[in-house]
């Protein structure tokens, strides 16, 4: 049944990307808007308790797309809020996501140091 879980991850992850593509092509929004909308959608879905079941169902199909970042924001905030009350909402938001943000910064720096962007090749 391993193959089946791969297939589900592929389809669900692909469908989330289809939504992103539709936001850009049909909704005529910028990549920045698309990113923000997907993050917020993930956060709202988790707030409604819907994102965790999606991860259980689709695995990496739900954790790899950017919606999972929104999910992690809400998740961290709710978990810390239970422990520390309202202040936990603020401290918790970046508790789970800090590794992702740090990784983006560090890998971005490394890529910028090594590579120089060029135009389309001939």
């Amino acid at each position: 049944m391993v193959f089946f879980s791969f297939l589900i991850a592929f389809i669900v992850g692909g469908l989330i990307c289809v939504v992103g593509q539709l936001i850009m092509d049909v909704g005529k929004l910028t990549p920045g808007h698309t990113l923000a909308i997907l993050v917020v959608a993930g956060a709202v879905l988790d707030g409604l308790g819907l994102y965790e079941p999606l991860i259980d169902f689709a695995g990496a199909g739900a954790t790899v797309p950017i919606t999972s970042f929104g999910n992690s924001l809400t998740h961290g905030a709710l978990a810390e809020a239970e422990k520390h009350g309202w202040v936990g909402v603020l401290t918790g938001m970046f508790e789970v996501t800090s590794s992702g943000i740090s990784a983006a910064i560090v890998f971005g720096l490394i890529a910028a140091l090594i590579f120089k962007p060029k135009g389309k090749a001939n």
Binding site: M24, D25, P31, K118
Partner: peptide, 11 residues
């Protein structure tokens, strides 16, 4: 538009 490094899609 965007710096080419950004790799934004174009319609």
């Amino acid at each position: 538009r965007y710096p080419i490094d950004y790799g934004a899609q174009k319609p």
